[in-house]
Design a protein around this nucleic acid. Sequence first.
DNA 1: CTTATGACTATGA
DNA 2: TTCATAGCCATAA
Length: 97
Amino acid sequence: MFAEIYQIVQGIPVGKVATYGQVTMILGTKDSRRVGQALHANKDRRVPCHRVVFADGSLAPGYAFGGAGEQKKKLLAEGVEFRGEKVDLGKNGWVGK
DNA sequence: CTTATGACTATGA
DNA sequence: TTCATAGCCATAA
């Protein structure tokens, strides 16, 4: 059932990030938690869960992928700009189609 | 089958 | 601006 979520997350282009709310909207539901749970339960490395962030641009504290700060490191490596501890959604926000 | 919990978001203090 | 609470939906127990 998380297949759609994985598909959406995998569809996020390198250098961009999507918010849980964005994915949630695509799913057609109103439950953003479901997205987070899917990603947390996800064991597939093909899914770039680090590109999925909170509505404010930050991400899951402590539960982050491989350790706090790792996601920032990965996103920076992909060209995503940061504004303090949050992703610059204004520039790197996923422009879904 | 019912209760509890969670990688969320929006709203109010 | 930061903290707390409510609403939502699926999974786990």
